[in-house]
Amino acid sequence: MKAVFRTKSMKLLGTSIATLAFFTFVAWQTASAHGYIEEPQSRSLLCHEQVNTECGAIQWEPQSLEAPKGFPGPSIPDGQIASAGGAFPELDEQSADRWEKVNLNWGTNTFTWHLTAMHATTKWHYYITKPDWNPNEPLTRDQFELVPFYEIYDGGARPGQTVTHQVTIPERSGYHVILGVWDVDDTANAFYNVIDANFGGESSNPDPDPGNPEEPELPDVPEWNASTVYVGGDQVTYNGKLYQAKWWTRGETPGNSQVWEEVVTSATTSQDAFESITAWNTFAY
C-alpha cells in the first residue's frame, strides 16, 4: 500500500508541476504581449490569421516583434527589418509574391494598432518603400524612404488598448511595404510591424483643395522659459521648433546650447530630417 500511495503521490506531484508550468507559460506569454497593427493588417497578423503561411512562431504571437529602438538609425540590422532583428526569420523572406497583400489607396488612411500591453510611448512613426524599390531583394534601409511619412510624439503618455492614426501615404502604385514603428518611452525597445500593400494608383482623397496647406502643428508642450528648471527628457517649443533636454538645465537657450536636442516632427523641415538620417545611414551592418 505504501508503494501504491507513493506512486500516486508522485503522479499527482508531476501533474501539479505540469499544471503550474503551463499556467506560468501562459502568464509569461500574457506579460510579454505588446501590440501589432491590425488595420491595415500587418504581415505578422496575416500569419496569425493563416492568410500568410509557413510563417514560423510569429503565427502564435504577432504582438511580439520587439527590438531596440532608434530606427532609421542603428537599431536593427538591414535584412531583418520585418522580423525586428531576426527573432522570427521567416518574416524576412522577401519576394514579389511571398506575402499576401492588403489593398490600399495612397493619400489619407486610418492605421490602427491593437495593444496587448499599454506601454508608455515616446512616438509612433511610419515609412514606405521607395517608388523604385526591388520587391525581390531583402528589406533594407536603402529600400525605404527614411523620412517618415507620418510621426507623432506622445511624450511618455500611456495609450489605450486601441491606437488610431490618420496618416497620409505618399503616391504609390503596385506592391509596396509600409513599416510602422512604436517607440516605448520607459525601455530601450520599440515594436516593428510591416504591411504588404497593393496600391491601385488612385488617391483616397482625390481632387484636394488647391489652397494653401495648413501649417503643421507642434506637439502640445510648453514654450521654453529661461527661469524654469528642466531635466533630461523634458520637451519645450522655441522659435517654432521642438526641443528635448539631454540633462539638467536652466537658462540655456534651445538651438544655442548642446543641452537641447531638436526633435524632428512633421512641423520641422524634411531637409533637417534628411540630413540627420543620411548620417545615421552610414552605419554598417
Score class of each variant (00 low, 15 high):
103 N>A: 13
103 N>T: 13
103 N>W: 08
103 N>M: 08
103 N>F: 13
103 N>P: 01
103 N>E: 09
104 L>H: 14
104 L>Q: 13
104 L>S: 13
104 L>E: 04
104 L>W: 12
105 N>F: 13
105 N>G: 07
105 N>Q: 14
105 N>C: 12
106 W>T: 10
106 W>P: 00
106 W>E: 01
106 W>L: 03
107 G>I: 13
107 G>D: 02
107 G>V: 12
108 T>C: 04
108 T>I: 12
109 N>D: 05
109 N>K: 15
109 N>M: 06
109 N>L: 03
111 F>K: 08
111 F>I: 15
111 F>L: 07
112 T>A: 13
112 T>V: 15
112 T>Y: 05
114 H>R: 15
114 H>S: 12
114 H>G: 05
114 H>Q: 14
115 L>K: 01
115 L>Q: 07
115 L>F: 04
115 L>S: 04
116 T>I: 01
116 T>H: 13
116 T>Y: 06
116 T>E: 15
118 M>I: 03
118 M>P: 01
119 H>M: 01
119 H>D: 03
120 A>W: 14
120 A>L: 13
120 A>M: 12
120 A>Y: 14
121 T>C: 08
121 T>V: 06
122 T>N: 15
122 T>G: 11
122 T>A: 14
122 T>I: 08
122 T>F: 08
123 K>C: 10
123 K>D: 06
124 W>T: 04
124 W>Y: 08
124 W>P: 01
125 H>A: 09
125 H>W: 00
125 H>D: 11
126 Y>N: 05
126 Y>S: 00
126 Y>C: 02
127 Y>W: 08
127 Y>Q: 09
127 Y>F: 09
127 Y>E: 04
128 I>E: 00
128 I>C: 04
128 I>Y: 03
128 I>M: 02
128 I>W: 00
128 I>H: 02
129 T>S: 02
129 T>K: 00
129 T>R: 03
129 T>F: 01
129 T>D: 00
129 T>A: 02
130 K>A: 06
131 P>D: 06
131 P>E: 02
132 D>E: 06
132 D>Q: 04
132 D>I: 07
132 D>Y: 03
133 W>T: 10
133 W>P: 03
134 N>P: 09
134 N>V: 13
135 P>Q: 10
135 P>I: 10
135 P>R: 12
135 P>N: 11
136 N>F: 03
136 N>P: 11
136 N>Q: 10
136 N>S: 15
137 E>L: 04
137 E>V: 02
138 P>V: 07
138 P>W: 00
138 P>D: 09
